[in-house]
């Protein structure tokens, strides 16, 4: 089957969606972490000029939409991650459906709130 087996939605329940998004957002966070470390390594240039020039690209109005998407990935990954950890060893297995719904709502609410704050901070 191969890796495409991680991305099968047709006929699948929401649990498969949650699994796939956990993987996808995990990979996005990993890529972000690498980009973040790249940014920090530019601070080796003690004048800070390299860092300033790079941050000028990403800390901007145009980048806000990417920031908001990144926060979505982070929030979903963290919140859904805690749901998965909770179910480890079969705990709360019987409540898996309501928990999936509740955790997804929490993720969306936190994401919307964070997006609103970020929007305000950039002078929206």
């Amino acid at each position: 089957m191969g890796v495409s087996g991680w991305f099968r939605f047709k006929g699948r329940s929401l649990f498969s969606w949650a699994f796939t998004f956990q993987r996808l957002t995990g990979v996005v966070l990993l890529i972000y972490l690498l980009a973040h470390l790249t940014y920090l390594s530019t601070l080796l240039d003690k004048t800070g000029a390299t860092y300033e020039s790079m941050i000028a690209i990403t800390v901007s109005r145009q980048f806000l939409v990417f920031d908001i998407l990144l926060v979505l990935c982070g929030v979903f990954h963290g919140v859904n991650g805690f749901r998965i950890i909770l179910h480890e060893f079969g705990i709360a297995y019987e409540y898996r459906k309501p928990l999936l719904a509740i955790f997804t709502v929490i993720a969306v609410v936190v994401w919307l709130y964070a997006s609103y704050i970020m929007y305000s901070l950039t002078g929206g």
């Binding site: 649990f15 498969s16 699994f19 998965i84």
Partner: peptide
Amino acid sequence: CHLAMECSE
């Protein structure tokens, strides 16, 4: 196991 839990479904 990655707790996709589709098997139970």
